[in-house]
């Protein structure tokens, strides 16, 4: 049976791992390769490395770090942050990334999704969507939640799928960093609407939150950062508890 995936996310700034609280108050938590290897040994199913400085500082790639990750990590990993062209994506594939996430640049230029997917395959493109609720509507944001776009979550997710996205990584900017749980109804609606996997991100504070989004929220994977980085919920503890709850998990 296909297992639900647990994915630690490592935010990278200047080659170091950080985790922002609502993307503010950055604090360092370790070497990206060492931390990734540790997570892989602990049972992480995939890793996501996001270059969070990229959009702000125009840093387009972190290919050198990606090369080192690919040499050392024996599970799949996704990289993102500031990918604005097919060439950016191609360089990261060449450096050994299994997938890339596109976010702000895809909102600006949706053709980017189609172009990367047709050149490197749908499985290579994860479309990350950050959204915030405004008057009952999920508005898509860019630049780490700092700017509103004119797009709405569900129609944008559908367009991303039609353009060739292999997965959707959805973060509620209202929940991210709060540790109060995920908006499960929204996730369930997304998952039922789309035929590609959904990765839930932003808001996990307890094991129950993750169990909820994988069951009630119908998500295929759960991504989190600080609960893993600070050892609040060790991955082996989390996976054992999810297995106990009859959620299909790779142990």
């Amino acid at each position: 049976m296909l297992a639900k995936r647990i994915i630690p996310c490592l935010d990278i700034k200047d080659g170091q791992t950080v985790k922002g609280i609502n993307f503010l108050g950055l604090r360092e938590v370790g070497d990206p390769v060492d931390l990734g290897r540790l997570y892989a040994q602990q049972g992480a199913d995939e890793l996501v490395y996001l270059d969070i400085s990229a959009t702000f500082e125009g840093r387009r790639t972190f290919a050198e770090l990606v090369t080192r990750i690919a040499e050392n990590i024996n599970i799949p990993f996704t990289v993102g942050g500031g990918i604005a062209s097919v060439d950016d994506a191609g360089r990261l594939l060449g450096a050994g990334a299994d997938k890339v996430t596109v976010n702000s640049a895809a909102v600006r230029n949706p053709q980017l999704i189609s172009d990367i997917a047709s050149k490197y395959g749908n499985q290579f493109v994860v479309v990350a969507i950050d959204a915030k609720q405004v008057d009952g509507q999920w508005r898509v944001t860019t630049h780490g939640g700092r700017k509103f776009s004119d797009r709405e979550l569900f129609s944008w997710a559908r367009e991303a799928q039609e353009r060739g996205a292999g997965e959707i990584l959805f973060t509620s900017m209202d929940h991210d960093g709060t540790k109060n749980g995920y908006p499960c109804d929204t996730f369930a609606r997304l998952s039922e609407m789309l035929s590609i996997p959904i990765i839930a991100s932003g808001g996990a504070g307890t094991i129950q939150h993750i169990a909820d989004v994988l069951t009630r929220g119908k998500a295929d994977a759960a991504l989190a950062a600080s609960i893993f980085h600070y050892g609040e919920i060790p991955i082996p503890t989390l996976k054992a508890a999810l297995h106990q709850a009859n959620i299909p998990i790779r142990l």
Binding site: M1, L2, A3, R5, I196, P197, D220, A221, R250
Partner: peptide, 10 residues
């Protein structure tokens, strides 16, 4: 069935 089949299976 979600396609591609992506992830860990037994």
């Amino acid at each position: 069935l979600k396609v591609p089949h992506m992830g860990w299976n037994s």
